[in-house]
């Protein structure tokens, strides 16, 4: 059965008729055509599909679009400034080569932004523990952790919010 869902995505109100069982990630990728949110495992384990829902990082492959009714959603496409300048976390991933194939990167960046928001004075140990739900098969994580540490220390991060 089709249902109507309405939510705010990256600051814009959106509203569509979708099948009840439509996953939030499918809604974002297929209906909204925003493909920066990736699907790596389909089962809530790899973190490639991580987005922010009402300010918290969640795995969008494990949530129905219906469950996001009325929510405020931010995807990777929504974290840079309107003028295209990168969010400090994005800039840090780029600068520290915290990516190779890039498939895990959007999810990593979304998790990392949430992590730094919750733990502003985060330690390496804490980053590694908090990042447990985001898999990367390419990098060895070293540069990813380096990037997050650098972004956490960057005064611009506090201002960027998200």
């Amino acid at each position: 059965m089709a249902v109507k869902v309405s939510m705010t995505v990256n600051g814009k109100s959106v509203s569509h008729e979708v099948e009840e069982r439509t996953l939030l990630v499918s809604y974002i990728r297929e209906t909204l055509r925003m493909t920066g949110t990736h699907v790596g495992c389909d089962t809530a384990q790899c973190g490639a599909c991580t987005i922010h829902m009402n300010g918290r990082a969640v795995k969008s492959c494990n949530i129905l679009a219906m469950q996001a009714e009325g929510a405020s959603i931010t995807t990777i496409e929504g974290v840079a400034n309107a003028d295209g300048t990168l969010h400090p976390m994005q800039a840090a991933f780029k600068e520290h080569h915290g990516l190779q194939c890039g498939f895990c990167t959007p999810g990593m960046v979304m998790s990392a932004i949430d992590l730094v928001k919750n733990f502003p004075d985060t330690t390496e140990q804490q980053i590694r523990e908090q990042l447990d739900g985001n898999l990367c098969r390419c990098t060895g994580y070293h540069n990813i952790v380096k990037a997050i540490k650098a972004a956490a220390a960057d005064p611009a991060s506090a201002k960027a919010g998200v």
């Binding site: 925003m34 493909t35 920066g36 949110t37 995807t75 990777i76 496409e77 974290v79 840079a80 990168l86 994005q90 800039a91 991933f93 780029k94 600068e95 080569h97 990516l99 190779q100 890039g102 990167t105 959007p106 960046v109």
Partner: peptide, 14 residues
């Protein structure tokens, strides 16, 4: 840096 780094971090790599 990787030639697609700016695309990867912003979800614009296809």
């Amino acid at each position: 840096r990787h030639d697609s780094a700016h695309l990867h971090v912003s979800g614009r790599a296809i």
